[in-house]
Simulated scan of single mutants.
Amino acid sequence: MTGPDQKLPAGQGRAEIDAFLRKVAATPARREGERRGRLIFALDATQSREAAWDRACRLQGEMFVETAALGGLDLQLVFYRGFSECKSTGWVSDTAELARLMGKVRCRAGETQLGRVLIHAEAEAGRGKVDALVFVGDAFEESLDRICALAGKLALRGVPAFLFHEGHDPLAARAFREIARLTRGAYCPFDASSPGQLRDLLAAVAVYAAGGRAALEDLGRRRGAGVTALIGRMGGG
């Protein structure tokens, strides 16, 4: 786990976020009139993530709030923790239900199981279209070769993976970057001391997937200068 005094260097963090937003901007959005978007929201719930889990519980509502006017979003929660425990919920369409489900989970010590998340996402995409996989974690303790093979299968299903990296563990960074590259998603580290940063990035992925760039520009007008600045950097703008 990254210690509380270890933060991303300011320049590196900003550059990574800019690159992440450009990748989001390049992801094709659904056309108006199509079905609701479907997003898998996966989190590391091992012991080192306890404080982060509480933050995620508070932030998750942004994805529903900001996409409601765009036709809505169906979201499935996936998490791993403890000894070989990886679970998923059904698809939910409102923030209260997701908050209830997340509130029942308690973090437990254990090793990472990102491979099982990818296997689940690929299987879910085989049953019906999945627009994106979002993963939030801070560590990686698995075989990179195996993870890359699983990411390749997910890519064949057309599911981009957006990986949010808390801290700066180099092994996790390498694995998360490879998954993002193979699935044509994006990788972005974030500073755990700035929850607003993660909130805006989660909202950006959800809003863009649901309504495209026009919807993001509207989000910027409603949320103020901070979001507008993020949008201005998307797509190289």
Rank of each mutant, 00 (worst) to 15 (best):
V136Q: 11
D138Q: 13
A139L: 12
F140R: 03
F140T: 07
F140M: 13
E142L: 09
E142H: 08
E142C: 02
E142S: 12
S143I: 08
S143V: 06
L144P: 09
D145L: 14
D145Y: 05
D145N: 15
I147P: 01
C148N: 11
C148F: 05
L150C: 10
L150E: 08
L154G: 01
L154C: 07
L154E: 03
A155W: 01
L156Q: 13
L156T: 14
R157T: 01
G158A: 12
G158T: 09
V159Q: 08
P160V: 03
A161C: 07
A161N: 10
F162Y: 14
L163Q: 05
L163F: 07
H165I: 14
H168I: 13
H168S: 13
H168W: 14
A173R: 09
R174E: 10
A175R: 02
A175Q: 03
A175G: 07
F176C: 09
R177L: 11
R177S: 14
R177Y: 00
E178R: 12
E178G: 04
I179Q: 08
I179K: 05
A180T: 11
A180N: 08
A180G: 15
A180M: 01
L182N: 11
L182R: 15
L182I: 15
R184T: 09
R184W: 06
R184F: 03
G185D: 13
A186K: 07
A186P: 00
Y187F: 14
Y187A: 07
C188M: 03
C188G: 11
C188H: 06
P189W: 05
F190Q: 06
